[in-house]
Write a protein that binds this DNA or RNA. Structure first.
Length: 758
DNA sequence: TATTGAAGCATTTTT
DNA sequence: TGCTTCAATA
């Protein structure tokens, strides 16, 4: 008789769920029900094999994946048992371990976690102190080098041994300083969370033994995207019981640039000759026509050692559409129009649609197109919630309340709101603290208690600094006694953020940003269940570690909307209708990877990931010309499109093309040297003049005429009634200059501003 | 010290 | 193009 937890699973999936001993490697294709297998396996281990939830470790790629899995698991075995399984991303799991055991490394456990922005600030300060010019040595690339080293388990000492260039010399000096600074600030960066955990395990085997003994089963999702540190962690913790369960898809490996090593998988196989390898080949997500396209893209890969054939029994389905737009604006408008069309025809929710692109910068055109049509959208990435200035400011206050030695946060808000503590004073303070070898906070305390021998600042600056110190000290006194929500409330009472935001951004945007702060207060309510003194630290930790996809279907995103997302972030997600935009040389594959064959292959896999997100309908788009920071260039369609057999695609003409005589199109085509020039045939030549209609438009197409004239009366949602002063076409948009009585003269984009005629 | 304006520079992808 | 950074001024 089939066990209840195995019902509805295919043979391969059942095998994976029931493989309870020894090392297991599951090679899963896209849409093969990975999460389901993982969830059912955990439930099976607990219910059937009698493993205690506490003894299971499951690592996911995003917090969102962990949350979803925990929820499903709760339905299968009950919430409280699901809660006891150790589940999360490498970063969040390591953060929890370090809170508990970092004292073995001679560090305090109330560390703060620095995000990319904080890391950058530290780096800049270091360059300043080392007297290196930021122009000559880009703080970002120096930090990137350090980060890469940490991901390869290379600490300062090892790095020093491998220095081989002048740039490395510089990096080494910064690396040393950077580590010292983080230590002094009692901070860890993202990479430290992993690296310090490995250090902890290696320097203190007795600590590792505790964990290795505890975790009887170690499971890792998306194993193809693990880097060296992460895999080292897996090997350490899993060594106790040798029950590994690694699941992933080699063809979806898209994070090599972040240090991910496919070699991890190969080395694992070599180290464990008894490994069971289980494929999951049936795809439950997409229709056959979509999978055919995906398969043709991946079949053209150079390295085909790992090609798993995926199949589906959903034979029926629409052909994949290939669309050429005139430029990025038309691309966006067409997508928006198509969404409106399909939504009406098929009665779909906006949640069913996703637009995917290579770079975040591409989102803008889509946002504008959605706004002008009144379509709601959810932008994933870009500036995330916790990266917004106003949010980071509040968080910085909370951080120094928690840990006042966090110099980055302290300097961030010492002059927010403006207290006339300018750069000069700040540098004086910093220098003073450095000379005394104490933290800035300690220096402030010296100042306030009048114990300072020869303080570098006096008069009004000193007064302002002391005020700030007292503000923070006052809040610090409350931190253990107040709930997080109340603490934030007190902070907002003592620091007039609302006025500040209105002053800085004006009524409208100020109000919007204030909303964000209120939302933050809302979030803080989720920590009510914890003991009062734990609320702040846990909150700060999660703030640093949540990613944007994590919040995709929580909080205000509840209302339906079209998802705008990068291909990288789309991994693991699925949508009934997917638009893949900007399939052009230079964009996908991206210009930065174009001269490295390995990177090109990664770009190919990225496209594969994109195509396999679609359940029923897939559109692939490219534009005839594209504007990249000012300059507009003609494009070449992505080489990957050339790998797709033509009969798998339907050319979908853009509306206007219907009116265009065929001969005109042909004529125009042959007179376009840019498109056909060059020794090798470009991929575009595969498309020209063959199947389907040709180029939809002439580049010299007349822009449509302005529709507003001077003297017209209009109404704007915020400014009220006004009179048009002038109007001109800017690109494809109409820029209307309107005088609003009492509000001044505003320049508005007609597509954007939703003007009403009066 | 804060504010203003001009110049110059930048876009992969993220936990 | 849109933002950050730098320099000049009050």
């Amino acid at each position: 008789m089939t066990h209840p937890l195995l019902i509805g699973l295919n043979a391969q999936q059942q095998r994976a769920v029931q493989a309870i001993h020894g090392p297991v490697l599951v090679l899963a294709g896209p849409g093969s029900g990975k999460t389901r297998v993982l969830t059912h396996r955990i439930a099976y281990l607990i219910n059937e094999v009698g493993v205690r939830p506490y003894n299971i470790l499951a690592v996911t790629f995003t917090n969102k994946a962990a949350r979803e899995m925990r929820e499903r698991l709760g339905n299968l075995i009950g919430e409280s048992r699901a809660h006891d399984v150790m589940m999360g991303t490498f970063h969040s799991i390591c953060a929890r371990w370090l809170r508990r055991d970092i004292q073995h490394l001679q560090r305090a456990n109330d560390f703060v976690v620095y995000d990319a922005d904080d890391q950058q600030r530290v780096m800049k300060q270091i360059l300043r102190e080392l007297d290196l010019s930021e122009k000559q040595y880009n703080p970002r690339s120096i930090h990137a080098r350090i980060s890469a080293a940490k991901n390869e388990l290379i600490g300062v000492a090892e790095f020093a041994r491998s220095v081989s260039s002048y740039f490395d010399e510089i990096v080494l000096r910064c690396y040393e300083r950077y580590e010292k600074q983080l230590f002094a600030n009692n901070a860890l960066d993202f990479d430290d969370l992993l690296l310090k955990t490995v250090n902890l395990f290696e320097y203190h085997p007795e600590v590792l033994a505790r964990y290795a003994e505890r975790y009887v089963h170690v499971m890792v999702d998306e194993v193809q995207d693990t880097n060296r540190v992460q895999f080292s962690l897996v090997n350490h913790v899993g060594a106790g019981h040798n029950n590994y369960f690694l699941i992933g898809d080699i063809q979806q490996s898209i994070y090599a640039w972040r240090g991910a090593r496919l070699a991890n998988v190969r080395e694992f196989e070599e180290a464990h000759p008894d490994v069971q390898i289980i494929p999951l080949e049936q795809n439950y997500r997409s229709t056959q026509p979509i999978l055919d396209v995906a398969q043709s893209i991946i079949d053209a890969a150079h390295d085909r050692r790992h090609t798993t054939k995926i199949w589906t029994d959903q034979q029926e389905g629409d052909l994949v559409s290939l669309v050429e737009a005139y430029d990025h604006n038309e691309e966006a408008r067409w997508v928006a129009d198509e969404i409106m069309r399909i939504r009406g025809r098929d009665g779909r929710s906006l949640d069913d649609f996703a637009v995917m692109y290579r770079t975040n910068a591409q989102s803008r055109a889509f946002e504008e197109a959605m706004i002008s049509r009144g379509l709601r959208y959810k932008l994933v990435g870009g500036t995330r919630f916790y990266e917004r200035k106003e949010i980071k400011d509040i968080v910085a206050y909370l951080r120094i309340i928690h840990n006042p030695h966090d110099e980055v946060s302290l300097l961030r808000v010492i002059n927010v709101p403006g207290r006339s503590i300018g750069d000069r004073t700040q540098q004086e303070l910093l220098q003073w603290a450095r000379n005394l070898d104490i933290s800035i906070w300690d220096a402030l305390e010296l100042l306030v208690t009048n114990e300072a021998q020869n303080p570098p600042i006096g008069g009004r600056a000193r007064n302002a600094v002391e005020q700030f110190q007292k503000l923070v000290a006052g809040l610090r006194d409350l931190r253990h006694d107040l709930m997080l929500g109340e603490l934030i409330q007190r902070l907002l009472e003592r620091v007039p953020f609302q006025d500040l935001l209105v002053a800085e951004y004006g009524e409208e945007e100020g109000a919007e940003r204030w909303e964000n702060i209120l939302e933050l207060q809302n979030v803080s309510m989720e920590y009510l269940a914890l003991p009062t003194e734990d609320q702040l630290p846990r909150f700060l930790e999660e703030v640093a570690l949540v990613s944007d996809v994590d919040s995709l279907d929580t909080s205000k995103a509840r209302e339906p909307g079209v998802t705008l997302i990068t291909l990288h972030q789309a991994k693991g997600l699925e949508y009934p209708v997917v638009f893949l935009a900007g399939l052009e040389e230079g964009l996908l594959p991206h210009g930065r990877s174009i001269d490295d064959p390995e990177s090109i292959e990664e770009e190919r896999r990225l496209l594969y990931v994109g195509t396999t997100r679609a359940k029923q309908r897939l559109y692939m788009l490219y534009a005839f010309k594209r504007a990249t920071w000012g300059r507009t260039d003609l494009t070449i369609p992505s080489r990957f499109l050339g790998d797709i057999p033509k009969d798998l695609l339907q050319r979908t003409p853009i509306r206007e093309v219907k009116q265009m005589p065929v001969h005109a199109a042909t004529q125009w085509q042959s007179s376009t040297p840019q498109r056909t020039r060059g020794a090798q045939p470009s991929p575009s030549s595969m498309w020209s003049g063959t199947s389907g209609p040709a180029r939809p438009k002439r580049p010299e197409r007349e822009p449509s005429a302005a529709s507003y004239n001077a003297g017209d009366k209009v109404r704007h949602a915020n400014f009220g009634e006004g009179v048009v002063v002038s109007s001109k076409m800017v690109g494809d948009d109409e820029e209307v200059t309107v005088a609003f009585p009492g509000k001044g003269v505003k320049k508005l984009l007609a597509a954007f501003a939703k003007l009403e005629r009066v």
